[in-house]
């Protein structure tokens, strides 16, 4: 039982990060129907900037919490600037182009950002400074660290904040209006360009936070870290129903838990020795070794994509999505 609980805790931590990144995908998709594949790279840049700031301030007179906050406060504006520039330079000129054009551009931007990061921050995995004390708590045999609690709590706060922003503010109203029909929203006096820019900026800010959280959690940052994380978050967004905020949050959390449980139990589930009766050769092999695992825990990264395929086959609009995806 403690193993199961531990896997759930692992999954929720991972899922919170996926959810925050997935929000970036889903917000942009909701408004301009573009899958911004460069969003994972924004997360990476957030982690890199924070790493750089934290390691240059570490060892100074400032208390660790202040240093980490300074890192976050530098990472967020940098990522926002990257998000804004990306939209302004690469996507806005293509807004009326066929849907495939901005999609391919997004992949291009992703590759460019990755390699610029490689030139700036080198090819090596960089150690993320571990300056915060990280006490570990025990619940019913499972452990949870302060960093994990912080990740889960911060993610929930950000999700709450974003929901308030979208449903309770003027900008939120403008965003929802633009999402429903950009032309009509424009006729009603909404500055569409500004709303779209803001969407990218907010998504990038969330991405920066996700980057800092991932860096602190794993203790390292690498210029390719955003690619797989971005793809998984995209799967999470599709699972929840892309374009739907609550869907991205639910999808992220679910995906994290599925991944943790899947990795933890796939070896035992696919152990052929459970059914050693079906052939004598197998029985002999099992008597000798005790295990014959078909899929091991190295299939960890596959679960997100299995989920993606299942969703696309059985419920293309996602768990909470109303809009049937007919484009891109």
């Amino acid at each position: 039982m403690d193993i199961f609980l531990q896997q759930i805790i692992n999954g929720l931590t991972l899922g919170s990060v996926y959810a925050i990144v997935a929000l970036g995908y889903t917000m942009v998709y909701g408004i301009v129907q573009l899958i911004n594949f460069a969003h994972g790279e924004v997360v990476m840049i957030g982690a890199m900037v924070a790493l750089w700031v934290i390691s240059s301030l570490a060892g100074g007179a400032m208390p660790p919490v202040v240093i980490v906050l300074a890192g976050i406060l530098c990472a967020i504006p940098v990522c926002m600037a990257v998000g804004y520039t990306m939209e302004r330079v690469a996507y806005r000129p293509l807004r009326s182009a066929p849907r495939l054009a901005p999609l391919i551009t997004a992949i291009g931007i992703s590759i460019i950002l990755q390699h610029v990061a490689m030139l700036v921050w080198s090819r090596n995995p960089l150690p993320f400074p571990q300056i915060l004390a990280n006490p570990i708590f025990e619940i019913a045999g499972a452990t949870i660290s302060a960093v994990q609690i912080a990740i889960i709590v911060l993610s929930l706060l950000m999700m709450g904040g974003l929901t308030l922003l979208v449903y309770r503010t003027k900008l939120g109203v403008a965003m929802r209006a633009t999402s429903e029909n950009p032309q009509v929203a424009g006729l009603m006096g909404i500055d569409i360009n500004r709303v779209i820019s803001m969407t990218f900026i907010i998504g990038a800010g969330l991405g920066a936070m996700a980057g800092v959280m991932v860096g602190t959690y794993y203790g390292q940052a690498h210029y390719t870290m955003g690619a797989l994380l971005g793809l998984k978050a995209f799967c999470a967004a599709v699972l929840g129903g892309i374009g739907n905020l609550a869907g991205a949050m639910l999808g992220g959390m679910l995906l994290g838990v599925v991944e943790a449980l899947g990795t933890g139990y796939i070896g035992e589930i696919t152990d052929l020795c459970h059914v050693s009766g079906i052939s004598t050769a197998l029985a002999e092999r099992c008597a000798e070794d005790g295990h014959m695992v078909v899929f091991g825990s190295n299939y960890q990264d596959v679960f997100a994509f299995i989920v993606l395929i299942l969703v696309l086959v059985f419920r293309p609009s996602g768990l909470l999505g109303e809009r049937v995806s007919d484009r891109a």
Partner: peptide, 22 residues
Amino acid sequence: LPREKGTDKQNDWKAVLTKLRG
């Protein structure tokens, strides 16, 4: 114990380790 595997780029080992811890 039966071999556990990851990848050379993996940085999330918690699921594997949790299983081992058991």
